[in-house]
């Protein structure tokens, strides 16, 4: 089977990312801001969490944040392609819709992984020491999270008819997903309703796995988290694969 169509869809997004210098800078600036401004600022107000200071605690969360924004953003970029007409060029090519989604999911997760990986390089700077095997685990978790969220982005984009809905997605999906994932505060000692929402958020388990691999602290068992994350991955990818309709 000739899989070059999937490759070229992936390649276009990656090419465009590296060409847009401002995009690269933004991608690195946001996590840096969170780590150093937000993290440093909050550090004095937080008591040590299992022996880690706030910057160390929030570090896996900042990686998760990078993944969330980049992957959902990439998935949603389909609405831009639709708006500028380019989607028609793809939709009318002699390839199955599922290939388009695969190409897009792979490019979205590649970009998220590149940026998440860059943040990971900050680890020694904030005093988080990770062994090689732990890095591999982190990368695997990051990949699953990115693929799932790009899938979510594609599902959302497939249902949106214009980019006006982008702000709503930002408010009602991306922000809550991030804030209620245990990325920026530990999930104990918080009100029950908050806890309830957080454990329903599939991202919580991704964040927990990342924190487990980096800091060896985790709230849920590895098995439970892995199961939740894998199911999320399967549901999102399947959903995305069948989200692009016959008609544009």
């Amino acid at each position: 089977m000739n899989l070059t169509p999937i490759f070229i869809i992936w390649y276009r997004d990656v090419l465009r990312f590296f060409r847009e210098k401002s995009q690269l800078l933004t991608a690195l600036f946001r996590p840096a801001l969170w780590l150093f401004a937000f993290g440093m600022g909050l550090r004095p107000s937080f008591k040590n969490i299992h022996g880690f200071n706030y910057i160390q605690f929030v570090f896996p969360g900042v990686i998760a944040m990078t993944l969330i924004f980049t992957s959902i953003g990439s998935g949603i970029s389909i609405i831009w392609d639709r708006e500028f007409g380019f989607l028609k060029e793809i939709m009318v090519a002699p390839i199955p819709r599922t290939w388009i989604v695969l190409g897009k999911s792979l490019s979205g997760s590649t970009l998220a992984m590149i940026q998440g990986g860059c943040v990971l390089l900050f680890a020694p700077l904030v005093g988080v020491h990770i062994s090689f095997s732990e890095v591999l685990i982190c990368l695997l978790v990051m990949f699953l999270v990115s693929m799932s969220l790009t899938g979510l982005g594609i599902i959302l984009a497939a249902r949106m008819t214009s980019f006006e809905g982008f702000g709503a997605i930002m408010n009602f999906i991306i922000m809550p997903l991030y804030f209620l994932s245990g990325a920026i505060f530990p999930l104990h000692g918080i009100p029950f309703w908050l806890y309830l929402i957080s454990i329903l958020n599939p991202l919580t388990y991704g964040v927990d796995l990342l924190r487990g691999a980096m800091l060896h602290i985790h709230q849920f068992s590895y098995l439970l988290s892995s199961l939740f994350l894998l199911s999320f991955f399967i549901v999102m990818l399947t959903g995305a694969l069948f989200s692009l309709k016959y008609e544009t």
Partner: peptide
């Protein structure tokens, strides 16, 4: 097909647009 509205990626070059198309069509 040539659609009524433009369907090029204008952040790619002419060559890249054509290459994308060629790969898409195998």
């Amino acid at each position: 097909i040539i659609f009524q509205e433009p369907t090029l990626d204008d952040r790619l070059t002419a060559y890249e647009n054509l290459k994308f198309h060629g790969f898409l069509y195998g």
